[in-house]
Design a protein around this nucleic acid. Sequence first.
DNA 1: TCGACTTTGTGAATTCATGCACGAGCGACA
DNA 2: TGTCGCTCGTGCATGAATTCACAAAGTCGA
Lengths: 241, 241
Amino acid sequence: MSTSRPRRRIPEASVARLPIYLQILIEQADGGVLNISSEGLAELAGVNAAKVRKDLSYLGSYGVRGVGYEVDYLIFQIRREMGLDQDWPVVIVGGGNLGQALAGYGGFSGRGFPVGAIVDNDPAKVDTVVGGVRIRHLDELDTIVSGTGIAIGVIATPASAAQEVADRLVAAGITSILNFAPTIVTAPSRVSVRTVDLAVELQILSYHEQRRANLRSGTRTGGRGTGLGPGSATLKRGATA
Amino acid sequence: MSTSRPRRRIPEASVARLPIYLQILIEQADGGVLNISSEGLAELAGVNAAKVRKDLSYLGSYGVRGVGYEVDYLIFQIRREMGLDQDWPVVIVGGGNLGQALAGYGGFSGRGFPVGAIVDNDPAKVDTVVGGVRIRHLDELDTIVSGTGIAIGVIATPASAAQEVADRLVAAGITSILNFAPTIVTAPSRVSVRTVDLAVELQILSYHEQRRANLRSGTRTGGRGTGLGPGSATLKRGATA
DNA sequence: TCGACTTTGTGAATTCATGCACGAGCGACA
DNA sequence: TGTCGCTCGTGCATGAATTCACAAAGTCGA
Ligand SMILES: NC(=O)c1ccc[n+]([C@@H]2O[C@H](COP(=O)([O-])OP(=O)(O)OC[C@H]3O[C@@H](n4cnc5c(N)ncnc54)[C@H](O)[C@@H]3O)[C@@H](O)[C@H]2O)c1
Ligand SMILES: NC(=O)c1ccc[n+]([C@@H]2O[C@H](COP(=O)([O-])OP(=O)(O)OC[C@H]3O[C@@H](n4cnc5c(N)ncnc54)[C@H](O)[C@@H]3O)[C@@H](O)[C@H]2O)c1
């Protein structure tokens, strides 16, 4: 008779916010705060209080009416629900600038995601040590993954190699991928993939910048560029070449 | 008599996808592809074809029925709409590991976002050169921004300094901020802020990992932790200290 | 012990996003 | 010139996320 239900699935949008609440709560706990209201948490997170309550309600009823949430207990519950009550070592593929920066970055290991291994396919990089971890050869991936039970792979190779690396990660048994290469990588649906692309972030900012500029200067930037419409438009499907 | 309308606002979700289409289109153009269908583009982007068509329809009617979209022309239109027909130089605040990596990173400048300046508040860092740019003192921020018209600021300082840095960026006249520090930064609503937090990304992956693990091993991981509920629950509002 | 006050948890309304389905437009070809 | 096949553009239905608004449940002071 398990008293705890299978715990209903948490909406993606909420899942993406829980880590933010968590981080705020940890800061508050460090600052000696014992209780926090949905209002207070919402303010610190920059969101609506009702949203906070609804998000937290997916974890269970852990608030106290008239008082708020006990910070420590909420931290414990979010951690548990997100699987952060254990470490998740990661394997970094690509020991270049980014790979090395990540390996040496404390905020990675310090948050429950220690760098379990780094691999590269460049013989010159293999056996050098970064962030206290020796770079091993890409071909050892299978051994590493099956030997350590690492579930998360980080792609820090050039975009041209990203898909191939993803395929190898999947073949080796990885079930989550964090991709820093500016390209789409696909994987079987049982594998989670998240891509962080700086250029995309900047371009989104650019859109809003340009939008503001347009609004200021009455509806249009200037003369429209070369005013040519779609040209001849021949050729077949093209794409899936 | 401007033929071009004020162009209806594009939904955020679409704005976030346009850079992805753009990148794919550029790759295709480089590969000599002249035309692409919504289906083809959708496949490469890993999304639904109807979504692609709807997204592109916000730009205007640039497709040709029975044929698809002319790649070059679509690139031109997305660029124009997103404000990418001009460069947006950025100022990086914080010349540490990350700041240096970003400054030296080609995919930054190469995509229309050249590093216009780097500033730091550490005298030891000032006047050193990274990525061809000399680090200047934080106090020169106002001069730099007003002198160059830079609109985008990148925060690459420790989290503890992020909000203060953001305030200074805003005061200096910056209108878009890309924040790499793992903390929420707030700014007036006229300023766009985007935060890229690695830990958040990894924690989202962790959630799904943990979820899969739970599903495999029948509904629950193991015994529930310490089964204590919210404790005494005293203390007042606490939060907005 | 009671009543005033605070804050949660959640149904319901609303807004935003996705995906389907199909009419309309275009090119190709006889 | 007419017909056929392909693909866009979009109205509409469905689903997800957000926000409102309020009863329920608790605290606290007298
Ligand atoms: N440097 C940055 O600041 C930065 C920031 C954001 C994103 N990125 C992206 O991260 C990726 C890596 O950037 P970087 O600056 O570290 O590049 P880099 O060239 O310094 O490093 C790439 C590394 O990947 C290795 N590699 C190449 N192909 C491989 C393969 N098939 N298997 C294993 N290893 C392979 C190379 O040997 C090299 O060590 C790029 O896609 C880049 O766009 C970089
Ligand atoms: N290193 C990584 O791989 C990595 C990855 C993702 C995110 N981050 C985040 O990026 C930020 C920077 O990381 P880092 O590894 O470069 O740290 P770092 O300590 O190497 O660099 C921080 C720099 O910021 C400067 N600085 C501090 N306070 C400042 C202020 N008030 N004004 C201007 N400059 C100031 C310091 O002098 C230093 O040069 C951190 O918040 C970190 O969490 C780092």
